[in-house]
Design a protein around this nucleic acid. Sequence first.
DNA 1: GTTAGCACTCGGATTAAGTGAGTGCTAACA
DNA 2: TGTTAGCACTCACTTAATCCGAGTGCTAAC
Lengths: 349, 349
Amino acid sequence: MDLSDRKQKILQAIIDEYIGTAEPVGSRAISKRNELGLSSATIRNEMADLEDMGYLVKPHTSAGRIPSDIGYRFYVNSLMQRYQISVEAVERLKEELFNRVNQLDVLIKKAGVMASVLTEYTTVFTAPSLGRSVIRKLDIISMSGANSLLLLVTKAGLVKNKMIDAAVDDYEAAELTAAINRVLSGKTCDEITESDFEEICELALRETDIDERKISLVIGYVAEWIRTLGESEVFVNNSRAILQYPEFSNVGKAREMLDFLEDKDNLIKIMESGHNTEGVGIKIGAENDFKELENTSLVTVDYKIGDRTLGQIAVIGPKRMNYAKVIASLDLISTQIDSILKQFTEGEG
Amino acid sequence: MDLSDRKQKILQAIIDEYIGTAEPVGSRAISKRNELGLSSATIRNEMADLEDMGYLVKPHTSAGRIPSDIGYRFYVNSLMQRYQISVEAVERLKEELFNRVNQLDVLIKKAGVMASVLTEYTTVFTAPSLGRSVIRKLDIISMSGANSLLLLVTKAGLVKNKMIDAAVDDYEAAELTAAINRVLSGKTCDEITESDFEEICELALRETDIDERKISLVIGYVAEWIRTLGESEVFVNNSRAILQYPEFSNVGKAREMLDFLEDKDNLIKIMESGHNTEGVGIKIGAENDFKELENTSLVTVDYKIGDRTLGQIAVIGPKRMNYAKVIASLDLISTQIDSILKQFTEGEG
DNA sequence: GTTAGCACTCGGATTAAGTGAGTGCTAACA
DNA sequence: TGTTAGCACTCACTTAATCCGAGTGCTAAC
């Protein structure tokens, strides 16, 4: 099961080569690199061994070899060199993320875009989960007219709003806002229960002279809204990147993949499946739960506030992706988000 | 220049056929339809005439004919049959648009999606222009912490928010909100000038006891924000639809097109160029200002509130698109938006 | 253990021939 | 005079045959 040092070097050379060219690599190409000082015949023998052991695969008899999923896995776990992201790229990322971004959803959206810019692959990210976000403030805002506006701000700086079909005047808005915040402020959406809303209604009924029907109408809207806010949202960036790679050079395959990426339910499942890993998670080819992804690899990272996970950012690319670069990029982005959020929330009570 | 009745019928038959099959159509195919009772030889003669007149084009000697841009133009202007959208589709659209949508941006987004669902083509739409929207209310909301939230609601139901790096307490928020609304409420963003903000500052300074520096800080943020809000935003739906059509069966072409659709500046220009038309505007092939669109057609429609244009919805598809259906769909959607917005704003003062 | 040499494999490119949809023209017909 | 049948011709596309070369596995010599 163990690989000799030489076999490892050869495997690494093959994978490095294949990642660059997307062509099956032959013994001669490796020999010519002259890093190992071995003839093609020797390499050929070693390659045959590596194939027997399952690390390499031949597309057909007279082609070179390409890495198997197991080969990639070994590469990722043991062989891969650390990738150093250029100072300029880091600077650009910092500037992009820090620059006047003080709303969490905007920050994450930018982070998702930057991930696809850095890696040149398709990225998927989930919007910050409201279920796990702590409510800072929930306002009802009176509009002159037949409706009013609900406004929710979380501690991490996420802002959501919703127009409702209920007219409230300034007094009612202020009183209801106060009642709501006395009960909900500091809770996460997941923690809020039916009885919280009952409590709000009682509070409003007892301490204000707002019409009971109006209270229950408005609080009903709030309750319904909070429920829907818990639902996950996913976004895809740069999905057309897959057209760049020879793996998808036929339109049919490409379209299948794009269709797959369009289906939010799939994406949510993917993101959930990537979630149970520490730091950067990698799924190679058939390791993915979806058949549609059997020719791609998925690299995911969580973003969190403190130790509360808010969502994930993922990169989807061909199995022969530049793992080192992708991992370094996601790592960088997640630490940046972390430090921004820390700074962003520490002023708060 | 005039086309005989028979020539028109033949041209129509050719275009109808070509729209369906995407294959050059030959004289025999038209003859076999048996609508005209003419032999293929006769049709052949007429087709030769139509080619001389510029309505048809031959890809090569021994292929059938395809319509030229001029041919399509004549078809669209004079030949095309009215398309009747199915009752179910209309119902679905109404339900989708009316159902609990009371924010303009959400409504337009849904309309854009529905346009691509109905037509099965790529759609582009501009977000409602804030520059031309009348401000209903601009609120400053106090957050417990180092920042506060700006909230803008337009008469048509567009909601925008922005976190700013300035702490205000409830008193300051209420007073500043009042001052701002006394000056800005009822104006469109385009109408607001520098002196409006000066007026707000004076007002706040004279009638409240808020610190002068804080007033100018906050109002400065508001001014800056309002300026940026004037910028156009465009969105693309279902861009992968282009992969469906044989015109883009090679990945290179498809990618070029997708890249083009990704560039928001292009899209803004496209939408602007489509704008100066009444009702539904159609640009066929080379009629478009962009070389990238020379093999596509663009159908645009404005959506407006009263007589104030807020933005556009456009369909981009192959030149052999089903014009009748696309036009009918956009027409339907724009009238629906119109009636919703009418109903939506008529309650207001 | 390493390597040179060689027969063998097989996908991809190249070429050649065949196919068929379509055209344009001509001559006959109503 | 308009319509049509007939026929030679064109040309993209398909299929088959051939060639080419990168790559392999195996063997024998170093």
